[in-house]
Design a protein around this nucleic acid. Sequence first.
DNA 1: GTTGAGCGTT
Length: 405
Amino acid sequence: MDFVQVSEEEGDEPIELPAEEDGTLLLSTLQAQFPGSCGLKYRNMDTKAVRGVRSNEGRLFPPSVDSSWGEYIYFCVFPKGIAHFRSSAAQIDSPYRPILPPVENKRKSDDNLENSTAKTKRIETRLRCTDLIVLGLPWKTTEDSLREYFESYGEVLMAQIKKDVKSGQSKGFGFVRFGSYEAQMRVLSNRHLIDGRWCEVKVPNSKGMGHQVPCKVFVGRCTEDINSDDLREYFSKFGEVTDVFIPRPFRAFSFVTFLDPDVAQSLCGEDHIIKGVSVHVSNAAPKAEQNRSHQGQNFNYNSGNNFGMHSYHHQGNHMNSGRSGHHRVTFQGGNFLSWVAQNSGHSNASNMNNCGGRKGSNNPNSGSAGMIKGDNSGCNDQQNGNSGWSNQSSGSNSVDKSNFL
DNA sequence: GTTGAGCGTT
């Protein structure tokens, strides 16, 4: 039996994984050791380049013609978007903030010394799992086999198959719940071959945002000279600001997104003075989903999570160089990044820390007035080209913030 | 006994 040496990342100590009789390595074998991985790559010693391993229908194929894996040490490919999760969970602005801790009304201005590790830890404790729906299950899949499959990702708290009450026949979908948020994230961003059939895992539509805490606030009475840097700088003293959005053309309001929903909430209803202007902070109303959606169903972000079963067969290879650090990706067949990004409104994933020099300037006294005024280098006010404003009647004083969320 | 987009008898 041939063994394939695989490590999680290049340079890590490899694990030997057994190949199949036909020389292929089962994706499930790989994922049993490296949950969440979706492929393999290796360093070609001749070209010094990283090469991807052919992958199709749940099997990984050895690179050489004689069906041997050779002496290469292969390393895992993880779906894009997951790449940064481990190293800095703080960058994932999750749609799941269902846990509403007692509102302590505490300001984070005292937490400026808090290091990122502590912050990450705090966030992770906040992230909670929800049931996930598994669509497209084979009729034969049982709750046991469903559980067994997903256990490679982490602790499975619940696995159920929806069945016809009379016949007991599976309806072809089920639900699964994980014990860890990371497992949930990986499952959501992965493709799943369960009992021989490609299935998709999504957040159920029944999960609304009802009990989730918004991270975004509406800032009214803005003047035109208050730019995104001003807002970011000012509001950073209350907590980490992950996004600032100023609709263009000028509409006298803007949106500020915080990492911590508590911070956002604590600011709502208050007046703040920025550059001598009294602005008003209020809760950012949920987006009126193009007026199509029913109330309470404003969490359709996940509808972009099209891990379409049809596309799977045409995209066996996910040649993602798992941890390149680039945000811009094309995540074919899936939409993990936009799922992450949309939740925060305006693509936090790509705008995070776009404005250089913001880190460490949480102390409002640390920034000189000269820095605050007109320092907009490298940071666009209208971030990410949100075009929601075109629906607005320009110049109107009746502010409709809904289309900006 | 069949089927293949969807959304959970509690």
